[in-house]
Simulated scan of single mutants.
Amino acid sequence: MNAFAAYGAINTKIHARKKSLLSNKEWQKTVEFKSVVQVIDFLKKRPGYKRLLNDYKIEDVHRTELEVVLDRYIVSEIENMLHYFSGSYKVFFKTFLMEYEINDLQLLLRSISRNENMQGIEHFFVHSQKYGLTIYDKLITCKNVIQFIEALKGTIYYDTLKTMAEEDIAKREFHMEMKLYILFYKQLMEVAEQLAPKDKKIAKKIIGTKIDLINIQWIYRATKYYDISPEEILIYSLPFGDKVNYQRLKILSYTKNLDEYKKLVQRYISSSLFQEESDAFLEHTIDRQLYHYIMRMNTREENISLSLAYIYTLYIEVQDLVALTEGIRYTLPQDELKKYLVHTI
C-alpha cells in the first residue's frame, strides 16, 4: 500500500471521469458540425465542460476563448486529482500545472516585449488559481522585461530567466520560451525521482516518450524552416528522453539532410513519423503516436499509470477540440478536417 497515493479512490474517480471523454461515435458527430456555435452547444451539455462554459453565451464564445476554457478544464481536473495524493506524489502531479503557468508567463512576456496594452489580459489566464504563483497582479504592472524578471525573484523561474534581459527582443522572446519549457520538463523528471521505484519507472517512461516526440518535431522544424545552428538546436532540445538520449540528440541535431534525419528517427524509435505528405500534419502524427502508446498501457494495476494516462488523454482531446473548431472556422471538408485530429475517425 502506498502511503502517499490513494490508488483505489483515484482510479475509481478517473474511471468515472473517463466516461466524459468523447467516444469515436461522438467525434464522428462533431466533424459534421458546420459552426463553432454548434461545438460550444455540444460541449455545454457534457459533464465537465458545461461547468466552465455555463458563464458564456454560446454565440459570444470565440475560438481563443474556447481554448482558454478548455485549458482551464485540464487544470481543474489536475487540481481535483491532487486531493488523492500527498507527499512526493502530490508534488509530482502538481508539477503538471507548471505548463499552464508557463503559458501565462509567456503571454505576459510577449505583451510586455511588444508594448501591448495589458488591460484585460487576466481573462486569458489558464494557470491554477489554487496552486499557481500569487504575484500576477505585480507581473501585470511591469513595464519592461527586466522589471518582469525581477518580479519573479524568489520563484522557480527567476534563475532560468535572469540572464536573458540584455538580448534583443526578437531573440529574447524565443529563448525565454524555450528555457521555460526545458525548466518544466527538468522539474517534472526531478520530482519523478522521488516516487516509489515502480511508479518512477512508469512516470519516466511516459514523460520520456513525450520528450522524445517533442524533440523529434523540434529538430525537424528547426533544421528545415529556421536559421538555427546545430549547436543551438542541441541546446534547446529537452533532456531526459526515453529512447533518444543525449548522444542521439547530438547526432540528430547535426544531421546533414532531412532524408538521413528521417531514417535515424525511425531507427531510434522504431516508428515512422513522416509518412504524411504535408508537414502540417506532423504535430498530429506525433500526438497520435503518444496517444496510441497510452492506449496500449496497462492501467488496471494500482499505480500511477491511469492518472498519467488520463492527463495526457485529456490533453489530446482538448488539442483535437481546438483543431476541430479551427477547421470548422476555415470550412475544411470533413475528410480534410479528420486529418488534423489525433483521434482516428
Rank of each mutant, 00 (worst) to 15 (best):
I233M: 10
K198N: 08
K256D: 14
I214S: 06
E231F: 07
R267H: 15
Q266F: 09
R221G: 04
I216Y: 05
H175R: 14
Y225A: 14
Y261M: 08
Q187L: 10
Y246Q: 12
I228Q: 01
F174Q: 14
Q217M: 13
Q187K: 12
R172L: 13
D199S: 06
E167G: 07
K162N: 12
M176L: 11
Y268C: 07
R267P: 01
Y226R: 09
D168T: 12
M176C: 10
I235E: 12
Y220M: 07
M178G: 05
E231I: 02
M176S: 09
R248C: 05
I233Y: 02
D227N: 14
F184Q: 05
Y225G: 07
K250D: 07
D242V: 00
D242M: 00
Y261T: 03
K198R: 09
Y220A: 07
I182R: 13
E260N: 13
Y236P: 00
K256Y: 09
Y185M: 03
F174G: 09
T255H: 05
K179P: 00
K210F: 00
V265F: 07
D242F: 02
V244N: 03
Y268G: 02
E193Y: 09
K179H: 09
K200C: 07
K204C: 00
K204N: 04
Y181C: 03
L183G: 02
S237I: 05
A196I: 08
L180R: 05
M178N: 10
K186R: 12
E232T: 14
G241A: 09
K200F: 01
T223D: 01
F184H: 14
E190S: 08
Y246L: 15
K162R: 15
K200M: 10
L188Q: 03
L180G: 03
Y225N: 14
I233R: 11
I214T: 07
I202Y: 01
L258E: 01
L213V: 08
V191M: 03
K243A: 10
F240E: 07
V265D: 06
Q247D: 10
L188W: 04
K186Y: 05
K201G: 04
Q217R: 15
Y185A: 00
Y220Q: 08
D199L: 02
I235R: 14
